[in-house]
Design a protein around this nucleic acid. Structure first.
Lengths: 137, 137
DNA sequence: CTGTATCCTTAGGGATACTG
DNA sequence: CAGTATCCCTAAGGATACAG
């Protein structure tokens, strides 16, 4: 699967965002990194939505290309590859939190998934700080 | 174009949201209704991203099916069709505002589109109230 | 103006085998 | 474990003609 240069439909900021992650998979990877502390290919692959490996590889490459994510060798195990969010990627947290809160309000199924809804509800501002400091630490 | 029932990949709230509007067009229609006071088919069709009419009709039908949007005859002109956001649709405003702010921060092109960035920046909380009261009024 | 319908092309993506 | 590669099918979507 060849990753082409990102399109550019208009100068609208919403359009820009959608051109980058307006699909059904990209934000799930961001979610895994942001809220579930996942950082390895295999961990993304085993998420319950079952992304297939070719799509996963494609999306990781795009995210790296857009500098939302870095890809590096684990310092403690050189053969281990580790993905991490850049500050550009971490800054998606507020948007994702609002998305979580909206779904929690309107969908009873996702409201049952308490994994990070409670965090998101407690304090939107504080959560962002938490996520960032955890990512640094 | 047949609109099928929405998929359900998992109980995750982010996955739920993406299953509803995780594509390149749906949120642009919401944007037009929320920030540009558009309410007619023709107005959506003339947005600069140039959605084609079959996709537009499909997305409007889905949004109506998900009760994010209502479709009614204009009370002042019975032949005129008017689309409006439900409260469920209006509640997407905070998420879209965060999306706008993120793009404004990281994309110089969309930062040049001042249409609603300034509003979004001034006061996130107040903007939501403004949008809702404007929609009611 | 508000759509529908049709044609056609491409991108998305599932399944799975394979490799270093 | 971390991917690549291939096969193949379907959904997405552009263009455009047509209809009420």
């Amino acid at each position: 699967m060849q990753t082409r240069e990102p399109l550019r439909r208009s100068d609208c900021p919403i359009s820009y965002a959608l051109d980058l992650f307006g699909d059904k998979w990209t934000l799930l990877i961001i979610r895994d990194m942001l809220f579930k502390q996942k950082q390895r290919y295999g961990q993304f692959a085993e998420s319950e939505e079952k992304i297939s490996t070719n799509i996963l590889a494609d999306r990781l490459a795009r995210l790296e290309g857009e500098e939302l994510v870095t890809k590096e060798a684990d310092p403690e195990n050189g053969r281990q590859v580790v993905y991490a969010l850049t500050s550009k990627g971490l800054d998606l947290a507020p948007m994702l939190i609002e998305m979580i809160l909206w779904s929690a309000k309107y969908d009873r199924h996702s409201a049952a998934d308490r994994t990070f809804i409670r965090k998101a509800m407690s304090d939107r501002g504080q959560l962002v700080k938490d996520v960032k400091s955890r990512a640094r630490g």
